[in-house]
C-alpha cells in the first residue's frame, strides 16, 4: 500500500476512460481465451477410434485442452513412456522442441503412438485404448510449449504413480 505521502487531497481528476477501457478489454480477452482450453469432459463421449485427419471434428476438444493434456500426462507416466521420452532424454526424444519428425499435430502424434515408428517406437494400439492415445497425443503436443521446470514439477508430483512395471508402492 502507498504509505508516506500522506493526507493528500482533492483536485478533480477527469475520468480516465481510456485506461478503464483498456483494463476491461484486457480482462475480458484473457477470460475468453481461457474458456475452451478449460473445458472438462468427463462423461462417456470419449473417442473410440483414431483421428481421421486434420479436419476430424473431435480435434478441437483435444488439441489445446488442459484437462485432456493432463490426463495424457498421467497415462504417459503410467505406461512408462518416460523410459525413452523423459525430460532428460536427448532431443528430440524428450519433446522439448516442436520439430517432431513425423508431424506435431494430433493425427500424426496419434499415429506414432498407435502404430509405432521405425527406430524403436513400438505400436501401442493393441495395448492402449483410443481415448488414452488421444489424450497422450494432446499431452505430447503440449510439451514443447511447456516450461521445462514446470514439466519437471509435474513429473515429481506424479512420482508415486505407477510407472509401468517399476512401481513399488506409495512414496515414503
Amino acid at each position: 500500500m502507498g504509505r508516506g505521502l500522506g493526507t493528500s487531497d482533492d483536485e478533480k481528476w477527469r475520468l480516465n476512460l481510456s485506461r478503464v477501457a483498456i483494463a476491461l478489454a484486457m480482462a475480458s480477452s484473457l477470460g475468453a481465451w481461457g474458456c475452451d482450453s478449460e473445458k472438462r469432459t468427463v462423461d462417456a463421449t470419449a473417442p473410440v477410434t483414431a483421428p481421421t485427419g486434420r479436419s476430424d471434428p473431435r480435434l478441437p476438444a483435444y488439441a489445446d485442452n488442459k484437462f485432456q493434456q493432463s490426463q495424457g500426462g498421467l497415462y504417459f507416466t503410467w505406461y512408462g513412456c518416460g523410459q525413452c521420452h523423459s525430460q532428460s532424454a536427448q532431443r528430440p526424444q524428450n519433446f522439448s522442441t516442436a520439430n517432431f519428425r513425423y508431424g506435431g499435430d494430433i493425427p500424426f502424434l496419434y499415429q506414432s503412438i498407435a502404430d509405432g515408428r521405425a527406430g524403436g517406437m513400438p505400436a501401442y494400439k493393441d495395448r492402449v485404448p483410443a481415448q488414452q492415445i488421444w489424450q497422450m497425443a494432446s499431452y505430447v503436443k503440449s510439451l514443447p510449449k511447456t516450461n521445462q521446470y514446470l514439466r519437471r514439477r509435474e513429473d515429481l508430483d506424479q512420482k508415486g504413480q505407477p510407472t509401468g512395471t517399476t512401481w513399488s508402492g506409495a512414496v515414503r
Binding site: G2, R3, G4, L5, T7
Partner: peptide, 26 residues
Amino acid sequence: GDTAVLCLWMFTHQPGPSQFSDVNDN
C-alpha cells in the same frame, strides 16, 4: 519508490507540516 517520489515532491513544492510528517513515517 516512496522515498524517490517524496524527494521529487519536497524539491518541487512547499511542504506543510503534514508533509514533514509523511517523511517521518517513511
